[in-house]
Nucleic acid binder design. Structure first.
Length: 269
DNA sequence: TGCCCTTTGAAGGCT
DNA sequence: AGCCTTCAAAGGGCA
């Protein structure tokens, strides 16, 4: 049962108690898409510094600058390169998608040795070969519509918490026997709240850089583009379910001293 | 096979 | 402005 697995993570959670008192709780950063500036005191760190170990294809941190200034291979990358002398260039460590796995260039860069597809670009699922065979038989309109549907999905850039989760997930899994992501994510959520403001700021800054690069790579992209691509339950059912299984408010907010794991019996608000 | 669960944050739409 | 909804990742569970 799911709840039991969560219970089994109790000891792990206890090692990362929420800060006592709401005032000490690290406040979320202001919406960066509005301010679009690093908060005061935010350490300017290279992406690689934070993401080298848990990710598969790290690159030496000191190659970022040189590789960023490689000659352009594709016209749509020009925006990013201009960043190195523009807003992004003001950062002590210029962001490099060559070093950041989630921004790693793929086959869109001819001759690039990595040739790893950009993780933000996800090829459509399905039996593509059969579909391409069938396509010959279809009308031009159908073919066009199908082409649209087959366009690779550009994923949303990861936010600060998602970046944190990606880095810490393996560590949490190694520390406990849990494998269910839902339980792991609850632990990670608690740890996230237990982080100091400075620690969280690292991830907010990384997320801000991710968004900047994403905007440069896909200028016309909107989060709306991916709406409806996931089939989801009806709204009512979803809300009912989440209120039933969510953590108690005090626990969820990380400021309750009477924290409890009696998730299902607690009031949602 | 594909959605659900679970977390936080970003972003878009609506009132 | 504030609220609501959706989607980002992840992988076991389940229909």
């Amino acid at each position: 049962m799911y709840k039991e697995t969560v219970y089994s993570a109790f000891n792990l959670l206890m090692h990362y108690p929420p800060p006592s008192g709401a005032g000490q709780h690290p406040q979320p950063q202001p919406p960066l898409h509005k301010a679009n500036q690093a908060p005061h005191g935010v350490p300017q760190l290279s992406l690689y510094e934070h993401f080298n170990s848990p990710h598969p294809t790290p690159a030496p941190a000191d190659i970022s600058q040189k590789q960023v200034h490689r000659p352009l291979q594709t016209p749509d990358l020009s925006g990013f390169y201009s960043l190195t002398s523009g807003s992004m260039g003001q950062l002590p460590h210029t962001v490099s998608w060559f070093t950041h796995p989630s921004l790693m260039l793929g086959s869109s860069v001819p001759g690039h040795p990595a040739a790893i597809p950009h993780p933000a670009i996800v090829p459509p699922s399905g039996k593509q070969e059969l579909q391409s065979f069938d396509r010959n038989l279809k009308t031009q309109a159908e073919s066009k519509a199908e082409k649209e549907a087959k366009k690779p999905t550009i994923k949303k850039p990861l936010n600060a918490f998602m970046l944190y989760m990606k880095e810490m997930r393996a560590k949490v899994i190694a520390e406990c026997t849990l494998k269910e992501s839902a339980a792991i994510n609850q632990i990670l959520g608690r740890r996230w709240h237990a982080l100091s403001r400075e620690e969280q700021a690292k991830y907010y800054e990384l997320a801000r850089k991710e968004r900047q690069l994403h905007m440069q790579l896909y200028p016309g992209w909107s989060a709306r583009d991916n709406y409806g691509k996931k089939k989801r339950r009806s709204r009512e059912k979803h809300q009912e379910s989440t209120t039933e299984t969510n953590w108690p408010r005090e626990l969820k907010d990380g400021n309750g001293q009477e924290e409890s794991l009696s998730m299902s019996s607690s009031s949602p608000t």
